[in-house]
Structure formats: structure tokens, C-alpha cells
Design a protein around this nucleic acid. Sequence first.
RNA 1: GUGAGCGUAGCUCAGCUUGGUAGAGCGCCAGACUGUGGAUCUGGACGUCGCGGGUUCGAAUCCCGUCGCUCACCCCA
Length: 426
Amino acid sequence: MSKRAEPIRSVKGTRDLLPAETGLWQRVEDEARRILGAYNFREIRTPILEQTALFARSVGADTDIVTKEMYTFEDRTSESLTLRPEATASVVRAYIEHNLFNEGGIHKLYYIGPMFRRERPQKGRYRQFYQIGAEVLGSDHPTIDAEFLEMLVLFLGRLGLREYNLLLNSVGCPKCRAEYLKVLRQALDKVKDKMCGDCQRRAATNPLRVLDCKVETDQPIIESLPHTLDHLCPECRQHFDRVTGELQQRGIPYQIAPRLVRGLDYYTRTTFEMTSNVLGAQNAFLGGGRYDGLSEMLGGPPTPGFGVAIGEDRLILAVEQTASLKPDDRLDIYVAWMGEGALHPASQLARELRRDGLSVEIGYEPMKLKKSLGIASRLGARFTVIIGEGELTAGRFQVKDMSTGQQEEIEPARVAAVVKEKLQKG
RNA sequence: GUGAGCGUAGCUCAGCUUGGUAGAGCGCCAGACUGUGGAUCUGGACGUCGCGGGUUCGAAUCCCGUCGCUCACCCCA
């Protein structure tokens, strides 16, 4: 006897989504496509593999994502490639590469797919995770920001999600941000000695991050720090006021979150995040904002943009816990047959039912009826068609409603129609 | 990268403190019920106790190492 080989397992931070879960994923994605379609977004599919420089230039060379979280490697010609850690950069790259801006107007694009970041896994965080993202390119009108957020609210409603918060902020444009950073640094110089070690470090390296600190004892100090909102230039201020004004008109509740600074370099003006308290420490299940300078950073023409990335893994976590969204993955019909002579008629019936669009399972070897019904029951079949000697000679099959136990004799040609009618009613 | 908790049957877990040769529930298979499932009862199969080493007459249990998972920090979806 040879020794059992060591089983190979999935890579750390990646996971298999088994049929028990994929039904819900499909439901969520179907709802997403539906609502995005309603707002005239069109799907774009970009490669998972991109040149490393794309992310260094867009996400930011000094961000955590780029410095320590990317899956980067050299291919055989020593070109540096990276598994995308996010997709906004890819979408804008494609927009520029295919000269979509020449078509004029605005472009509304969405994508669904996996992203990769090499972080330590924890609840709601995986090395391969999925995002549903949408981008509007070609306008900086505040109505776009508001309408986009309205769409997200509608989407979450369709999923049955009610418990979440919309957090909103503006980080300004490069002009007012430079001004703000100056003020922030001055304020930090006075108080940083009293803050946690991390904040003292951030005060020097990335002062905006201090606002994001979650250490309890730092909170009063953070409250007292100047806000980006109080240091916006007149244009940015007006833009933000228009966004909040339109949100109110649309009846969308939001909270101003002066501390909400997003971790990617390309954000300008509006930033937002939605959080849920059922998610554990990683409570943000979607986030995004405006990125008016990104196109130029990537060598394209000046093109304002606005987008969201929805963390599908986290969204589904929230849906599972707070919503009653159920995938419809039950089996319509199980075909139970007895005696070798019944195999052919049973297979033929199954084929016809399937051609009619019903989901059908059939046993592949003779079984006692009792066993067949047990299998049908376990599969969640709504109906079982019973075909034995008696049925064959009578030319009528037994159709059993598995929820009531009632059954009736129906001629083979009418089974599909009868079952469909019952499914409609039930 | 740092820290903590946890790895025992297909699943959820008990047993570990006080070492004595492995258990429960659920699930699965069969029968009661030879063409009628979900309920009940009876019986059955299933374990390198994560892996390696040490201590010991004896280790799931104590010690060391290692791998894995989970949660948290950092940061983000």
C-alpha cells in the first residue's frame, strides 16, 4: 500500500464558494445587473492582469496597497505584472486606451469580478475577493454623485438590506487639500504627543490617516482636529453643498463623516462609504468617490470620474445576517422509475421536461420507490413523477406534490404543462 | 508584518485541568414499512485525536517545535 498523498489545499485567503452559497451570489449579481442596467450602466470586462505601473500611478506609490499588498511578478520577458488590487484604474486605462472620450458624452461602466490583495485574512477580508464596481466618466456634475448614491440605496433595498449607514465627506481638490494638510500638520504638532504610537508615526508619514484612527483614547483629540470640509476651496464647497442638497431632495439619509478619508491617492471631492454593524471589524462593505484627476495621472485627457467599489463578500455577509433574500435553487421535478422497462420512458419524459425549461433530476439505476422519494425529498423537489409497471400499462404517470403529498394521474404529454401551472400558483 | 484563540467522525462539538488506549448530537446507510419521502423506533458504517519530536510503563490529555484555520491590529471592499 502506498502512503496517501498530502492533499493540496486552496491558497491562503482564497476560498471555494460551494453550491450552497453560489445561489445567493447569483441573486445578488442579478439584482446588481438589473439596477445598473436601469441606470444605463454597461458592463466592461478588463483583464485581471495589468502592468504594475498602472496601479503605482493611480492607487498611489506610497499606499499600503501598492507597497505591500499587491501580487506582483515578472513574466518571462521580465515585464512586471500585477493581479489587480482594484479595478477603477483598469477601467480608466481602458477608457483611455480605446479613446472612448472621443465619443463624447459620459460613459457609465460597471464590472463584477475578483481582486487580489495580499493581506492577512480575517472576517470579511480575503486575498481574492470580489467587487461589483461602477464608474461614471466624463462629468463632474454633483447630480451624478447624488444619483449614483440613490442607485446604491435602491440596490440595497432590493437586496432587503436596511441596516447600514451612508457616510459622506469631501476631501477637496489638490489645491484645497494642500492647504488643509498644512493646517492639519500644524494642529497635529501640538497634540500628537498625547496620541497612540501609530498616530504619531502617521502624523509624519500620512497625516490624513490619523483621522481614521480607531483607538478610543485618541477620539477626543481627533474630534478637535480641523476638518477637510472647513478648508475646501469655494468650488469644492459649492460642489459638496449641491451633492448634499440633492441627497436631501431624493430622501436619502446620510451622515457627514469628517474623518472619512479614503486610502487611495486618486480621490478628490466627494468620498463615501457604507457601513454595517454586522460585519465585524471590517465594517465598510462599499466605498468610493470622485476622482477627477485620475485620467490625467494615467496619461489620458482631463476626465472627471465618480465610482464605487462594492465588496461583494462583505455585502453577502450582511445580506445573510440581516436580509431574507433567498436564492431560488429548488428542483422542480424528480423522476422516480421502477423496473428496467421504465428507464426509457422515464428518460424520455425527463428530456422533454428539461427541454420545457424545468429543472429535473432522475435516478440512474433502479431503486425502490421509497428510496427514490427519499432522494427527491432531500433534493427539495417540488414534484415527483412516479413511473412503474402500472403507470406504463395505464399510459398515465403519477405526479406527486411533495409538499402536500397529493398525487394525480397524468398522461406523459401533459406533465410539463400541469407542473408548470401548479408552480405558477404555488 | 504583529498579537490572541482554536485544530478530536462528513458537520457542530464534549473529553484535556486531575495521563489508563475515543464519545454525543446531527447527517449518512439499512430495517421496522417487498410501489409512497419528510415523523418515530431499532441497528450499522465512519477517527493517522492537524503533523513531528520529547516526558512516561502508558499521551487526544503534559512539554517543545511545526503547519493550518479563525479573529483582531495595520489598511481596505
